[in-house]
Amino acid sequence: MKKTFWLVTLCLAGAKVSFAQHFSHGVGLGYSAEFADNIKTRTSTIITYSPRINVSETENTSVSVGIPLSIGISNTFKAGYSHDNDSTYDYGYSTGFILNVPVMVNFNIGAGSVPGNQKRTGFFAGAGYAYNLSTVNTFTPNEYGPEYEFSRRETKGNSGPAANFGVRIGVGSLRRRHNIEIKTSYMRAISSRKLNVIGLNCLFNF
C-alpha cells in the first residue's frame, strides 16, 4: 500500500508537463492535532507547501489534484501525579516531528479556482488519501547529570482516507490576483492505532 501511495504521488508531481491545464501553489502555517483512544492528544505547529494541478476547468470552477505537504514540530511538557500511583509525581517533556503527505482531489469554485478569476471569495472541498509519519522523543529527569536525559523514541507511520474543505479570499489587483486560503483537513488512519489527524492551515496561494 505504501509503495503504491508513493508511486501515485510521484506521478502526480510530474504530471504538470503532460496534462496540466494550470498549475498553482501556496505556502503557509498552521496547527495539527493527532489523537486516538490509546494515546494522548499531540499538537504541532506546521509549515505547509501546497502544489496543485487543475485537470478540468470552466470559467468559474475547476477540479484539481494536489499534494499539500505539511511538516511540523511539537514540544510538550508534562507534570502531574502518575495514574498508577497517586503519590508519585511524574514530570518530563517530549519533542516531536510530523510529516503529512496527502493526495487530494478538490472541487474549486470562485476565487482561486482558475487563473484570472475575478471573484473576491471562493470555496473548495475534496477527498483523497494521506500518509502520516510522526516521531516522539521523550526526556525524563536525571538525578546524576544534566537535568533531563533522553529516555525513549517512538516512530509511527499511518495511512488512510482524508478530506478537506475551506475558503479562499482574493487579494491584489484584478490583473494579478492571488488568494489567501483558510483550510481544515481530517485524516483517519486504517491501521490498528486508528489515529485521527486534524489540521488547520492558512496559506498564501500564488
Rank of each mutant, 00 (worst) to 15 (best):
M1V: 11
M1D: 15
K2W: 10
W6R: 07
L7Y: 09
T9Y: 14
T9V: 11
L10W: 04
L10P: 01
L10N: 05
C11S: 13
L12P: 03
L12C: 13
A13S: 08
G14N: 09
K16P: 05
S18W: 15
F19K: 07
F19A: 15
Q21E: 14
Q21H: 10
F23P: 03
F23G: 01
H25E: 12
G26H: 07
G28V: 03
G28T: 04
L29K: 05
A33L: 06
N38Q: 12
N38P: 01
I39P: 00
K40V: 07
K40D: 14
S44V: 01
S44Y: 15
I47F: 13
N54A: 13
E57L: 06
E57P: 05
T58H: 01
T58V: 02
T61L: 02
S62W: 04
S64V: 10
S64H: 07
G66P: 06
G66K: 04
G66F: 06
I67A: 04
P68N: 00
S70R: 06
G72P: 02
I73D: 02
I73H: 06
I73T: 11
T76K: 10
K78E: 15
G80E: 11
Y81V: 03
Y81S: 00
S82W: 05
H83R: 09
S87R: 09
S87W: 09
T88P: 01
Y89A: 08
G96I: 00
F97A: 03
I98L: 13
L99H: 03
N100H: 14
V103M: 01
V105M: 09
N106L: 08
F107K: 06
I109V: 13
S113G: 08
V114N: 11
Q118Y: 02
Q118C: 01
Q118M: 06
R120Y: 12
G126M: 00
A127G: 15
G128K: 10
A130N: 10
N132T: 02
S134A: 11
S134N: 12
T135C: 08
V136T: 15
V136R: 10
V136G: 00
N137E: 13
N137P: 01
N137I: 02
F139W: 08
F139A: 02
T140C: 03
P141E: 13
P141R: 07
N142C: 05
E143S: 14
Y144K: 12
G145R: 05
G145W: 03
P146Y: 15
Y148H: 10
E149W: 00
R152M: 06
E154C: 04
T155L: 00
G157R: 02
G157S: 13
S159V: 06
A162I: 08
A163I: 12
N164R: 12
N164T: 11
F165N: 00
G166N: 06
V167T: 13
V167P: 02
G170R: 02
G170T: 04
L174S: 15
R175I: 06
R175A: 14
R176S: 10
R177G: 08
H178K: 11
H178Q: 15
N179F: 15
N179W: 10
E181L: 10
I182P: 03
I182N: 03
K183F: 00
S185Y: 00
R188S: 10
K194T: 11
L195P: 00
V197H: 09
N201A: 04
L203V: 04
F204C: 08
F204K: 02
